[in-house]
């Protein structure tokens, strides 16, 4: 994967995740890509090498894994992880 994008069920979940992830990881805040219709408007892009550590961190800060979705980007399109 070239990178991963995390989308969220609502804005507050996105903001909380942003707060926690930016402490440790190099993240980019972006509008949720149009291809990913689900989720609120705020998404977070992470580097592909950070993927394993980010998923662990997300499990710690979010008790409910239904509140976000992770998509891998490669060859011009997104695939749900």
């Amino acid at each position: 994967m070239e990178w991963y994008v995390i989308s969220f069920i609502n804005t507050h979940t996105a903001m909380t995740a942003q707060k926690h992830l930016k402490e440790t990881f190099e993240i980019v805040i972006l509008p949720t890509p149009r291809e990913l219709s689900q989720g609120c408007g705020i998404a977070i892009r992470i580097r592909s090498e950070d993927y394993p550590a980010v998923t662990e961190r997300l499990k710690e800060v979010s008790s409910d894994q239904q509140t976000y979705g992770i998509y891998g980007f490669s060859n011009g399109s997104y695939t749900k992880v």
């Binding site: 903001m15 942003q18 805040i29 972006l30 509008p31 408007g41 705020i42």
Partner: peptide, 14 residues
């Protein structure tokens, strides 16, 4: 303000 700062990053990204 925190939301405002996030929106500005998203705008510049776009």
């Amino acid at each position: 303000p925190v939301l405002g700062a996030t929106l500005l990053k998203m705008y510049l990204y776009t």
